[in-house]
């Protein structure tokens, strides 16, 4: 298959999820034959662009018109559809980040392509084209067939490993033929927490619930997270009562995450909470109640008072990191 991959950058550096997407595409191309073209949109230096070759991009299309200096669903989807037509692509792969979610459906509509979002498997192509995705916020999985000749997949971050498959890609500067009137949205201000790992992309997540007793105890969660290089999350009531920002709320009505490690501290393990986190590879529950439902969903558990246990775990984590 001829594959187009959206190589998303943030401030000129490609995201980890972009390398996952290229590795994913490269595996499909190896199995089915065909080319992987990475599409970079916005300002990225040439030495950064060539990084895309490391993971299997055969070619790079570079859209760096000034119109792309701000991220907009309208302009970015036009560039991707332009690239897909230019290469006669039959498969477009986009990581399901917040930006990815904004562009992928617009690309699908432009190309009249069937789209599946939140994909967690390589496609099964022996009989048609099928992929697996999470449904019911992680309570189950579905296999979905795409019937159209051109297909769009948005893949779940952290679901595929980054694998090297070095190529020396050509880099072509592209013009999608956009004018200012094509864009009807305008970015006013972007605020990102600096030095923090975004929850949606984190491999390790430390999460607190009402059992943490109050926001004044969150320094324990943050210290453990900083020590291990993890992101922080919380249960719904914790964000509802403003102990933590809403953006940290995971679960069926919050963010669905799939990290390698999820440590749940003082969280009961309600069905709505588990829905958003149960696909994590390894789950640790820390709870003073031996009957807490979280222990049924966990790989490791500690029964005890979180406020007493956390300092010990932090000490061990620091010792481990310094070793």
């Amino acid at each position: 298959m001829n594959i187009i991959v959206f190589a998303e950058n943030q401030d000129g550096a490609f995201k980890k999820s972009s390398f996952e997407a290229i590795s994913y595409a490269s595996q499909i191309a190896s199995a089915t034959g065909g080319q992987v073209t990475a599409v970079s949109i916005g300002q990225v230096a040439t030495d950064k662009l060539t990084e895309l070759g490391t993971y299997g991009a055969d070619a790079i299309l570079n859209y760096q018109d000034a119109i792309f200096n701000q991220f907009t669903g309208e302009a970015y989807s036009k560039a991707l559809a332009h690239a897909a037509k230019n290469k006669g692509a039959d498969l477009i792969i986009i990581s399901n980040t917040y930006s990815g979610k904004m562009v992928a459906p617009r690309v699908a509509a432009k190309l009249n392509a069937g789209m599946v979002s939140g994909v967690i498997s390589l496609p099964e192509t022996s009989n048609g084209f099928k992929v697996k995705r999470m449904v019911f916020s992680g309570k189950s999985f579905a296999e979905v067939a795409i019937n159209t000749s051109v297909k769009v997949l948005s893949i779940t971050p952290n679901s595929f490993t980054i694998a090297e498959n070095p190529k020396s890609p050509s880099i072509e500067t592209m013009d999608a033929g956009l004018s200012a009137s094509d864009v009807k949205t305008e970015t006013i201000e972007v605020a990102r927490a600096t030095g923090k790992i975004p929850l949606t992309e984190a491999e390790l997540v430390i999460s607190g619930g009402r059992g943490m007793k109050g926001p004044e105890n969150w320094h324990l969660i943050e210290t453990l997270a900083d020590t291990l290089g993890a992101a922080t999350a919380c249960s719904k009531p914790v964000s509802d009562i403003h102990w933590r920002p809403h953006s940290e709320h995971v679960g069926q009505t919050g963010i669905t995450i799939k990290p390698n490690l999820y440590i749940a501290i003082g969280i009961s393990g309600a069905i709505q909470h588990l829905a958003g986190v149960s696909s994590s590879k390894v789950i640790v529950a820390i709870n003073k109640d031996p009957e807490a439902p979280f222990f049924k969903a966990a790989d490791y558990g500690i029964i005890g008072d979180a406020l007493e246990l956390l300092p010990k775990i932090i000490d061990a984590a620091k010792a481990f990191k310094n070793a």
């Binding site: 189950s140 296999e143 067939a145 019937n147 529950a285 222990f295 049924k296 790989d299």
Partner: peptide, 18 residues
Amino acid sequence: NTQTTSFELPAPKGACKL
């Protein structure tokens, strides 16, 4: 353009190691 062909429940977790 797409059709859900089947569903699958997650594999049950093994016992929690305390």
